[in-house]
Amino acid sequence: MEKNINLTLKVWRQNSPKDKGGFETYQVKDISTGSSFLELLDVLNEQLINEGKEPVAFDHDCREGICGMCSLYINGHPHGPDSEITTCQLHMRKFNDGDTIWIEPWRSAGFPVIKDLIVDRDAFDKIIAAGGYVSVNTGGVPDGNAIPIPKDNADESMDAASCIGCGACVAACKNGSAMLFVSAKASQLALLPQGKVEAARRAKNMVARMDDLGFGNCTNTGACEVECPKGISIAHIARLNREYLSAKLQD
């Protein structure tokens, strides 16, 4: 049954990228356990505005777990202490009356803080731009059924494609590695005949861009996979390694 709880929030506040930043402590009262975590922040912000203070800036958009906009590192977990969901789907029934909740931005050199809990994830777009696509122009393509694709391959490709680009993998990784993100896209396309054609070039370009942007090296801890809101498997990382190494060995 739903009830109301009182909480102490420790929220990272940082006015600008250059600002040093620090934690502020806030008390919030009578939060319905049926509300979502972001609704808790809405309540906090309403409270702050009424006190004449600046509200906490945080990224969010669709609030149904698919856009990948929301982030937040909550009590030791990217997207908080529930499995296979994003912060916007995290509900307050996961917390108890009197709890203290730590709310922090993603931490990684690749994702600098812009303000409060908002980080800059442009690096992900840059990696996709390096090769995360099939090089076809609009028009002049064959019929959709011209090339049959085994259902298993299509399904596995879809598993990889369900990545929402939120960055939780990087946030969870002790190495600040983006391998799960990169491998999900490389693997999705390598599994399909349409994407296989340029798989070698794609793997090389995407990995090179990832390295240039300063992301870390994967040490196969598997933390990314555990914290991924879409449950993307690190088997895709193995496939990327395979694609990349065989491509490089042929150079």
Partner: peptide, 17 residues
């Protein structure tokens, strides 16, 4: 056709279509 060519993983039947 365009989306298939781009690598959109549409659902498929066992025959691959």
């Amino acid at each position: 056709d365009q989306c298939v060519a781009q690598g959109v993983p549409f659902a498929r039947e066992y025959g691959g279509l």
